[in-house]
Amino acid sequence: MLKVSKHKPKTITGLVLLTLLLTSSRLLPAQEIQVIKFDQLHQIITDKNAPIRVINFWATWCAPCVKELPQFEDLLDKYKNSPTEVILVSMDFVQNLDSKVKKFAEKKNLKSKLYLLDETDYNSFIDRIDPSWSGAIPATLIVDARNEKRTFLEKEFKEGELEKAYLDFIQ
């Protein structure tokens, strides 16, 4: 009796998981992660036809980044009817795209737009994203290319701080 009650749920969970895995890969394609170079990122930042963009620089290995990610997902959800786009730019190495970044994005079911910046010569582009950036992550750029307004924050957002920064920006 004990044996049955111990194993049955596991089998059921396993079956459900298997079914989910098989169907989800077909019906719900995993969030796509586009691998880009700096020039493409620069275009995204400076695209004058784009809405307000909240661009977060993060990596799966960066604990404070991972901790604050839900704030970006919440912002996306809360302001989905405003002309605002939330973009997560992973600084993970490109060889970890499948093994780490995709896995993480699927596990967390990330809805923000995802990129992986495939550049190794950091000094060549950090200043071009923002001269005030030392290179530490997490860091976030809020930009409205239509009126060349931007704010750059090299910090970890405590609960509620991202939304405040966003609201300050749009005011």
């Binding site: 000094n123 530490a136 992550i137």
Partner: peptide
């Protein structure tokens, strides 16, 4: 002086 990506000092 140069810049690089790194972990923030805690």
């Amino acid at each position: 002086s140069t810049k690089a990506i790194g972990c923030t000092i805690k």
